[in-house]
């Protein structure tokens, strides 16, 4: 039985990865300026504490969240471990602070709805309230 289970996991593992990778990510902002469109580098800068041409504030999901893992891989291009070590260096040298973290996608939507200028990332399938505008999308 154990053997079959192992086999099943081995066979299924690549598909799990494929499904996860196939899911798109949207970056949404609470802004009235519908013309704002960021490119991948600007989104990366925004979530890594760098400056961008707009007055927007990044809000993140927790480290073990699946949407965050997808966002790290597709947009930031770094592992979670590397991102955590980057923020440790920034915090303890007084340079930058990691974005505020909200526990899950549903709470993130609530937070974004209430906070002008806030930006967060969500699965592409998320239903958005009218207050939020998609400013970046990746498949």
């Amino acid at each position: 039985m154990k053997k079959y289970l192992t086999l099943l996991i081995l066979v299924a593992a690549p598909f799990v990865h494929t499904i996860a990778a196939a899911e798109g990510i949207i970056v949404v902002a609470n802004t009235t300026d519908n013309s704002i469109q960021l490119n991948r580098q600007q989104v990366r800068n925004l979530f890594m504490g760098g400056v961008i041409p707009y007055d927007l504030t990044a809000v993140s999901l927790p480290p073990d969240n699946r949407t965050r893992v997808l966002f790290n891989t597709k947009v930031v291009g770094l592992t979670e471990a590397r991102i955590q070590s980057y923020w440790a260096q920034m915090r303890f040298t007084g340079r930058k602070r990691a974005p505020r973290e909200v526990n899950n996608e549903s709470l993130l939507l609530d937070y974004l709805k209430e906070s002008k200028g806030a930006v967060g990332y969500l699965p592409a399938s998320a239903t958005l309230p009218k207050e939020l505008t998609v400013i970046y999308k990746i498949d």
Binding site: Q84, S85, Y86, A88, Q89, F92, T93
Partner: peptide, 10 residues
């Protein structure tokens, strides 16, 4: 400026 923060480097 982060010599002591071992977590910050590989």
């Amino acid at each position: 400026d982060s010599l002591d923060v071992g977590f910050a480097y590989p």
